[in-house]
Amino acid sequence: MHSLTLPLPSGDTWTRADYEALPEDLPVRVSLIHGELVVIPRPRPIPADLVALVVEVVSPSTKRKDRRVQPTLYADARIRHYWRVETDQTAPAFAIYAYELDDATGGYVATGVHHDRIIAALPFPLDIELKAVRER
């Protein structure tokens, strides 16, 4: 196990300036939450070709993260197909947004929005009647 030495904060708690002064190449992820430095080990990379599709179900409490942060992480991991399931929309009440990784930009491009049925050939053939899924 490797040890990690971080500088001490300037006072009793960490400030934004203390946080921003940390080196950018830390072997761990760090977050500043209410004056506390939270250290999270970086996950080991998964060969992106092992994951063909990620489906993210948007939660009301994490909407922003699910819509903005997670897709970036999946694209960085080179996961070719990403679907976002929205369940709390008013009209329609259920939708799947499908995306595919664009090799030129490294980001996702939209390939469709599905409300009643999703038929796809990639990343594998499937045909799902979404009404049946919603009723479960």
Rank of each mutant, 00 (worst) to 15 (best):
R68Y: 15
E56K: 01
L32M: 02
A75R: 14
Y74C: 03
R44Y: 09
L53W: 12
S31D: 08
P43A: 13
V58W: 00
S10N: 15
A95W: 04
D12E: 15
V109Q: 15
V69E: 13
E20I: 10
K63R: 15
Q89N: 11
I79N: 00
G112F: 04
V57I: 13
L122Y: 12
V54L: 13
Y82P: 00
A121Y: 11
L32Y: 02
V38S: 00
V113D: 07
V39D: 01
R117F: 07
V109D: 09
I96Q: 03
H115K: 10
P71C: 09
R80I: 03
R42T: 07
V133W: 14
L37Y: 03
A77K: 04
Q70G: 01
I40M: 05
A91H: 05
V113G: 05
V133F: 14
H115V: 12
E36I: 09
S59I: 07
I118S: 01
L37C: 02
R42G: 06
A110I: 12
K65Q: 10
E20W: 10
P60A: 04
G11F: 07
I96M: 09
E36S: 08
V58L: 01
P41R: 09
P9D: 07
P7G: 01
T90I: 07
E135A: 13
P45K: 09
A104T: 08
P123K: 12
R42C: 11
S10P: 08
D18C: 07
P27N: 11
P41Q: 10
V38I: 15
L73Q: 06
R84N: 04
D18G: 00
A98V: 04
R117G: 01
I119K: 03
A110K: 14
G11T: 13
L50Y: 15
H81N: 06
T87L: 15
A48Q: 12
A110C: 12
I33H: 06
Y74Q: 02
T72I: 12
P9M: 10
L53S: 02
H2D: 06
D127P: 01
E135V: 04
H115L: 04
M1G: 11
E129H: 14
L53E: 09
L53A: 03
Y99C: 03
R136N: 07
P92M: 06
L26T: 05
T105C: 05
